[in-house]
Amino acid sequence: MLGENHALIYEFPDFADHIRHLKKNNTIFATMAQRYHELDHKIRALELTKVPTDDEHFVALKLERLHLKDKLYQYLVHDAI
């Protein structure tokens, strides 16, 4: 769906409290989460405003967001143990 919010708390609702904790207490996680948020915001803005962007650029943004999401999930799972 175009313009869908992929915020971490929506993507991983079971980890919402843990996400907030790591953002406050883990600078690496916080930095990656901030970049993820920036990418998600940029992607949604492009989708909603239908601003022309070349497919390569758009795909690159989405791939970076996906890779960050995977890394953040690994942090959540491993840190929760």
Results as ranks from 00 to 15, higher is better:
28 I>T: 11
29 F>W: 01
29 F>I: 00
30 A>M: 12
31 T>D: 06
31 T>H: 09
31 T>S: 13
31 T>K: 15
31 T>E: 08
31 T>C: 05
32 M>A: 06
32 M>Q: 12
32 M>K: 15
33 A>I: 00
34 Q>N: 14
34 Q>A: 10
35 R>P: 13
35 R>L: 10
35 R>M: 11
36 Y>M: 03
36 Y>N: 10
37 H>S: 03
37 H>K: 02
37 H>C: 00
38 E>R: 13
39 L>E: 13
39 L>T: 01
39 L>D: 15
40 D>W: 03
40 D>M: 08
40 D>G: 14
40 D>P: 03
40 D>N: 14
41 H>Y: 02
41 H>I: 00
41 H>T: 01
41 H>C: 01
42 K>Y: 07
42 K>V: 02
42 K>F: 07
42 K>L: 11
43 I>K: 04
44 R>G: 04
44 R>Q: 11
44 R>A: 08
45 A>K: 14
45 A>G: 06
45 A>E: 15
45 A>C: 04
45 A>T: 12
46 L>I: 09
46 L>K: 09
46 L>S: 11
46 L>V: 09
47 E>Q: 15
47 E>T: 06
47 E>I: 07
47 E>C: 07
47 E>P: 14
48 L>N: 09
49 T>K: 13
50 K>P: 01
50 K>D: 07
50 K>W: 02
52 P>H: 09
52 P>A: 05
53 T>A: 14
53 T>R: 07
53 T>V: 13
53 T>H: 09
54 D>N: 14
54 D>I: 04
54 D>M: 04
55 D>P: 08
56 E>G: 02
56 E>T: 08
56 E>M: 02
57 H>M: 04
57 H>W: 04
58 F>C: 02
58 F>W: 03
58 F>N: 06
59 V>R: 11
59 V>C: 02
60 A>R: 10
61 L>G: 15
61 L>S: 15
61 L>D: 15
62 K>R: 10
63 L>F: 06
63 L>M: 09
63 L>Q: 13
63 L>H: 11
63 L>N: 15
